[in-house]
């Protein structure tokens, strides 16, 4: 697994299908960065269906004013469907790290492509709906855009009871996926 880390500014794309919770992932990633005193812009793009259809969330995390609100040069991309991976796979050739779900997309290989069966793992852990948090947990462990604890704080603020416990467990499971590997990221 190879990821470039510029440490000053992060541009993130979370892509999948409507209903997978990727816009919420983007919001939570942004909120975690705000807790760390960063400047954040989060935008999204989706179709008219509440479930299905390509859905994107974009997050920019910076230390300075963010002038243009859209991601231009992503540092990391998450894709949770075959359609999303097809759209973004060419970015891997440009040296942009792509995390993708192998449950719903065909396996591809490449230096910058990292596949995990996120959907399957979330389902095995008891809630397929938390795939967004599981995959986010993996991403921020591979590329430390925000601290895991900041994201845990956001989860504790947003969810109560069983949902909170489940999502905190998913965050941890996502982080463990990466920590079990050897090297998580390479400084550019």
């Amino acid at each position: 697994m190879k990821i470039k880390n510029n440490e000053k500014r992060y541009e993130v794309i979370l892509a999948g299908s409507g209903g997978q919770g990727l816009v919420l992932s983007g919001i939570m990633l942004g909120e975690a960065a705000v807790l760390e005193g960063r400047v954040v812009v989060q935008t999204q793009s989706y179709g008219i269906a509440s479930r299905g259809g390509l859905s994107l969330a974009e997050v920019i995390i910076d230390r300075e004013e963010i002038v243009y609100q859209q991601v231009q040069t992503p540092d990391i991309i998450l894709t949770l469907t075959e359609e999303a991976l097809e759209k973004f796979a060419p970015y891997a050739d440009k040296g942009i790290a792509i995390f993708y779900d192998t449950t719903l997309a065909k396996v591809r290989t490449g230096e910058y492509l990292t596949g995990y069966p996120f959907t399957q793992i979330a389902s095995d852990l008891g809630n397929v709906g938390s795939v967004n948090i599981l995959s986010l947990g993996a991403m921020i462990t591979a590329l430390p855009m925000v601290k895991t604890e900041s994201l845990a704080q956001v989860i504790r603020k947003r969810f109560r009871g069983q949902a909170q416990e489940m999502n905190l467990a998913m965050l941890q499971a996502g982080a463990d996926l990466i920590r079990k590997g050897e090297r998580t990221w390479e400084p550019s």
Binding site: I27, G30, V34, V39, V40, V41, Q42, T43, Q69
Partner: peptide, 9 residues
Amino acid sequence: EIIGHMREN
């Protein structure tokens, strides 16, 4: 729509 749906600090 972009500005309506966008989130910032």
